[in-house]
């Protein structure tokens, strides 16, 4: 059974990691989590990014955050990727599977997955 005491071990393990984290130069992955996003399936998308970034060992460089309604409800779940010195990438109609692909190809590989972006979607 999990106990609060186990958190102490997590704390010790993470103390160094958190202290070296900087906010400059980070990549931010922002998931829309308003009613429209949640209804369209944003919860598993968010969790796929949180777990995928952690498993890839990128937690020091990449921050996964939530936001409210972005204003394009028909394209939810919407995910925006902000990177230093690059234009924002907006992914639409995301799924957990697509999130894994975005981590692999875009976040790790540096190349946005254009077919999932808003630019590739029929308006």
């Amino acid at each position: 059974m999990k106990s609060l005491a186990e958190l102490q071990a997590i704390k010790n393990k993470m103390a160094d990691r958190v202290s070296v984290r900087t906010s400059s130069g980070n990549t931010r992955i922002v998931v829309g989590m308003a009613t429209c996003g949640i209804a369209a399936g944003a919860r598993p998308v968010l969790n796929a990014f949180v777990e995928g970034i952690s498993e890839a060992g990128l937690s020091n460089d990449v921050i996964v955050t939530q936001t409210g309604c972005i204003g394009i409800c028909q394209y939810e779940p919407v995910v925006e990727v902000f990177e230093k010195d690059r234009e924002k990438t907006t992914y639409v109609k995301m799924t957990a599977e697509k999130a894994k692909e975005v981590i692999e190809k875009h976040i790790k590989g540096g190349t946005p997955v254009t077919e999932y972006t808003i630019g590739a979607t029929q308006l």
């Binding site: 958190l7 704390k11 958190v18 777990e51 970034i53 952690s54 937690s59």
Partner: peptide, 19 residues
């Protein structure tokens, strides 16, 4: 949870969320 972790470790850390 915060009492054990202290203020320096945010609860949004993946390891904490997994726990």
């Amino acid at each position: 949870i915060r009492e054990t972790l202290g203020d320096e470790i945010p609860l949004s850390e993946p390891d904490v969320l997994m726990w």
